[in-house]
Design a protein around this nucleic acid. Sequence first.
DNA 1: TCTATAATATGACAAAAATCATATTTAAGA
DNA 2: TCTTAAATATGATTTTTGTCATATTATAGA
Lengths: 143, 143
Amino acid sequence: MLSKSSKYAIKAVLFLALNSNDNEKVMVKDISGPINVPQAYIAKLLQELSRKNIISSSRGPKGGFYLSEDNRKQSIMSIVDVIEVEKNFNSCMLSLKECDENKPCPLHKILYPFKSSIIKNLRSISIKDLALEVELGNTFLPL
Amino acid sequence: MLSKSSKYAIKAVLFLALNSNDNEKVMVKDISGPINVPQAYIAKLLQELSRKNIISSSRGPKGGFYLSEDNRKQSIMSIVDVIEVEKNFNSCMLSLKECDENKPCPLHKILYPFKSSIIKNLRSISIKDLALEVELGNTFLPL
DNA sequence: TCTATAATATGACAAAAATCATATTTAAGA
DNA sequence: TCTTAAATATGATTTTTGTCATATTATAGA
Ligand code: FES
Ligand code: FES
C-alpha cells in the first residue's frame, strides 16, 4: 500500500505538526524515538522533505525541523509524492504502465475506483487536518 | 498495492483460465511469453500456487499447468494470499501491526474503509468471473 | 571571529524482493 | 524398461529498498 519510507515520513511530519512551529524546532534525535524510526533513516527522509519544501528546517545551534503555517496546509499526498520512489501508487494494478480506460485490465473495474478515491482523499486532506484529529483525541499517533 | 509477484501470479492464473483445462495443459515456457514475465520466475510462482492447490499441474511429457473446474471457483484473493509474503495488505497503513478500531492511527478513518472493501471484493470474485470478462471482451489481458 | 551544534550530502552496508540456474523427480510413450 | 519431457526443489545472483556512518556546511551565541 504505502512503502515503509512513506509511512515513516507521514509519522514524522505529523509529529512535527504536533510538536513544532516557527520558533520551536525539533531535532532529529528527538523525533526518531517517539515515532519509533531509526534516527539516521528518518534524518534522510526529513532532509528530502525539507529540500522539497514539505517541511522546514534550519541548521546550527537552536536549529531543527519544524512546520510553518504554509507547510501545514499541504496535503498528505504531497508527502507521499516526495518519498515514494516508484509511482506504483498511480499505475495499473496488473501490468500496464498506466491505466487505460479503453483497454482496462481484468482488475481495473474492481480496483481502480477505490484507488482513485484513496488518492483523491490523500490529496484533499491536509497535514493540519490530520494533526487536529490527533489533538482532539479522535486518532492516535503511534508507537 | 500488490507486489510484482502477485501481479505476475494473477496474470498467469488468468492466462491458464483462458488457455487450459483438465486435458489441455500449458507448459511454463508457453506461459511466460504471452504474459510477459521471465520464465524461471513465473515457474517458481506457479509451483507455489500448485503446491497450495490454487492451480493444478502434472509432470512428465504431456504435462503442464492447468485449471480444474474447482480451481476456477477460487477467489482472486486466494492467489494473493499464497504469493504475498508480507501480509501488508492486511495490516495498518501507518505503523501498527494490526488495525485497532479503538485506537486508530491518523490514516485509519480515511484509508481503512477502502482497503477492507478492496479485500472483500478480491475475496468475492472468482478466477472464473474475471476470465469470463476477458472472454466477453470487457477487459483485456496484457502485455 | 571562534566554537559548538545543528542539518546536509554522500555513499557504504544490510535485508528483502525479484530474477536466474540447475540437479532431481515424475510420468508418457516407444 | 528406457528415454525424454515436463514440473519440482533448492539455492545462487542481482536489484531494490531500507539502514547506517561520516565528512561537510551553516548558524547561533560567546
Ligand atoms: S488498467 Fe489495470 S488497473 Fe487500470
Ligand atoms: S490503525 Fe492504522 S490503518 Fe487502521
